[in-house]
């Protein structure tokens, strides 16, 4: 399984670390943190999630993946806000 890093090109899975749902990028104002920390959607299908290319360039990426087939549709740089 490979993830297409925008900087490094397609690289093997073992170079990346996984964090979770890309919704983590939308940190709420105080008052809604409990849901932010503990509640996640659990879709069977396409899922946008955060991976870091830790064994490569170190960038945080938003990767779109089908969690039922593990097909990866693409990866964008997280700090480019259009990815969020």
């Amino acid at each position: 399984m490979r993830i297409p890093c925008p900087f490094c090109g397609p690289r093997m899975l073992e170079e990346f670390v996984y964090l979770g749902d890309a919704a983590l990028m939308r940190r709420p104002a105080e008052g809604a943190t409990c849901d932010y920390v503990f509640l996640r959607d659990n879709p069977a299908g396409r899922h946008r999630e955060l991976w870091r290319h830790e064994g490569g360039c170190g960038a945080w990426l938003v990767v779109e993946r089908d969690v039922t087939t593990h097909e990866i549709f693409g990866a964008a740089l997280a700090e480019a806000r259009d990815a969020g």
Partner: peptide, 13 residues
């Protein structure tokens, strides 16, 4: 470091 980078890139770019 991973956490700080997450905060920088994903929370407060």
């Amino acid at each position: 470091f991973r956490h700080m980078e997450f905060a920088r890139a994903c929370l407060w770019p």
